[in-house]
């Protein structure tokens, strides 16, 4: 406990560094998955390709991917870009399937009704299908956020600063408190992000709450 109090500024700094790697990846994963998931929901051939392709991508172990990406991207082994790209890839691998499932789960009769009122193409997809898919999208995005926050720590063994570095440093110097602090902060961060997205999902779908209240 004493170590934690004495090193509070360090813990805060590591938390911010952690967020600077995790947040861009979580946001990018959503932005990339939305169009890809839409493609997968819309066309059968692309669904098979995207779902099995992203499934294989998710099977790639994280540490080897962190090591391999610099050879493809031309970045340094300890470049944050490297880690953000790797985490984004995992996020996309998880999320494309949930976007596709979420969009496909929207009631066909609702889409038919909108089409009958003259909506089509982009307007139908963006103003009817997407909002109705928000609860399922939020559920998928929460899983991405939690696993991304946890995966960031692996980059610590390469020397990148994040909460993962607390594990590396604590292990090398034999400071149990440092590792425990890292574990607790990682879980707290994951839960906080998870709850934030859950709240966002509810805030974006006020009609769902009204339906429950009625």
């Amino acid at each position: 406990m004493q170590w934690i109090l004495a090193n509070a500024p360090l813990l805060w700094q590591r938390t911010l560094e952690h967020l600077s790697l995790a947040l861009p990846a979580v946001v990018l994963a959503l932005l990339i998955s939305l169009p890809l998931g839409w493609l997968a929901a819309r066309f059968k051939a692309s669904r098979w390709l995207l779902v099995s392709g992203t499934g294989l991508l998710y099977a790639v172990p994280s540490l080897p991917l962190f090591v391999m990406l610099p050879a493809i991207l031309g970045t340094g082994l300890r470049s944050p870009v490297n880690v953000v790209v790797a985490l984004t890839l995992y996020g996309v691998a998880l999320m494309v399937r949930s976007v596709s499932d979420a969009l496909r789960a929207v009631d066909d009769t609702v889409l038919d009704a909108a089409e009958a009122q003259g909506m089509g193409g982009w307007r139908l997809a963006l103003s009817v299908q997407l909002p109705l898919a928000v609860p399922a999208l939020a559920a998928g995005w929460r899983v991405v956020a939690v696993s991304t926050v946890s995966l960031v720590t692996v980059s610590g063994v390469l020397g990148l600063p994040s909460l993962g570095l607390l594990f590396v440093d604590g292990f090398q110097r034999g400071i149990t408190e440092e590792i425990v602090a890292g574990l607790v902060l990682t879980v707290v961060l994951a839960v906080a992000l998870d709850q934030l997205i859950a709240w966002l999902g509810r805030a974006l779908t006020p009609w769902a709450r009204r339906a429950v209240a009625a």
Partner: peptide, 17 residues
Amino acid sequence: GAARALPSLGLVTLLAL
């Protein structure tokens, strides 16, 4: 759900200590 949030590196280093 909790297992997804638990960082493997933290668990490995803590137990190794």
